[in-house]
Design a protein around this nucleic acid. Structure first.
Length: 288
DNA sequence: ACTCAGGTATTAC
DNA sequence: GTAATACCTGAG
């Protein structure tokens, strides 16, 4: 595989920090020069932005233009989405101004399932560390510019990994959950290809919930951030609960806010764009 | 020492 | 059904 490059001029709705630090991905790292380098599938890539020009550079398993357009969701009109959401109210509008460069990546379904199981009751630096060690130990090495990168391990590559092995990687109590889910998928108790084809979000969500370590929040993150791409879901974590309470519900104790109430509110206000709205609100509240 | 972090599974009313 | 409780780990 040789290095390829792809340049887009006058790009809209694309800011590096917004895309990579809004919480949807775990394997992109900021470089000293401000660009980001990451690995997805068998592609190792660096992304830099100068003015309104974005340059994608890396070694790709295919045509870089096609790969980039798919992964970065470039064929979706985020300007239109932002305009629609901005009309809801001033707070949503403000959150969109803050995270105006967000794009929801098309990330591998399997990788998202495993990554978000690891994310439960955990913090981002540690989540990233665990995923990196997992890839380093069980994924395939790819070298680029003298640096080594590791693909996210496939189900097959995790076939013989034991619960103890996971524990050694620092997974903590999530070790058994990961083990069980890996084997449920290997045994085709859940067929990810079929899941990918199923347009019924409710059914897919129910299937995800049968996986060990996958509860409502993790299921919704998988639905939103993977290639399943269901924008109508609304993952509720501590930050989203906080921002929704502050903006709309105004309960004294945010921890006591009912999830059903938040879900209902999100559906009423954001409809089939709830997931994207969630991302702007989450990022705004967490970073700002 | 102690709290906290992208929740989930288990147990108890 | 809904409400409490434990849970690895490591950074602050």
């Amino acid at each position: 595989m040789k290095e390829q490059e792809y340049k887009i001029e006058n790009i809209k709705s694309f800011e590096l920090t917004d895309v990579f630090d809004c919480g949807q991905c775990f394997r992109w790292n900021k470089q000293p020069d401000g660009s980001y380098t990451g690995i997805f599938g068998k592609n190792v890539m660096n992304v830099q932005k100068c003015g309104d020009t974005v340059i994608f550079k890396g070694i790709c398993n295919g045509n870089i233009k096609e790969i980039v357009e798919d992964y970065f969701d470039l064929n979706r009109d985020y300007e239109d989405i932002k305009n629609k959401l901005s009309q809801i109210d001033e707070n949503v509008k403000k959150s969109i101004e803050y995270g105006k460069g967000i794009r929801i990546l098309n990330q591998d379904l399997w990788e998202m399932i495993i990554s978000f199981i690891i994310s439960a009751n955990n913090n981002i630096p540690r989540i990233k560390g665990i995923i990196e060690r997992l890839a380093q130990k069980y994924g395939k090495e790819i070298e680029w510019k003298g640096e080594k990168y590791y693909t996210f391990p496939t189900p097959e590559e995790l076939k013989d990994v034991t619960i103890e092995d996971y524990r050694k990687l620092g997974l903590g109590f999530r070790d058994i959950r990961l083990y069980e889910t890996v084997h449920m998928i290997l045994d085709k108790k859940i067929d990810l290809n079929k899941m990918q084809q199923n347009p019924n979000t409710y059914e897919v969500r129910e299937q995800l919930l049968t996986l060990s370590g996958v509860g409502p929040k993790v299921a919704d993150c998988i639905l939103l951030f993977s290639t399943l791409k269901r924008f109508e879901v609304f993952p509720i974590d501590v930050w989203v609960r906080r921002v929704m309470n502050e903006l709309y519900i105004k309960n004294e104790d945010e921890t006591k806010v009912n999830k059903k109430e938040i879900e209902k509110l999100a559906k009423e206000k954001f409809g089939n764009l709830a997931g994207i709205a969630q991302q702007y609100l989450f990022y705004w509240k967490r970073e700002a």
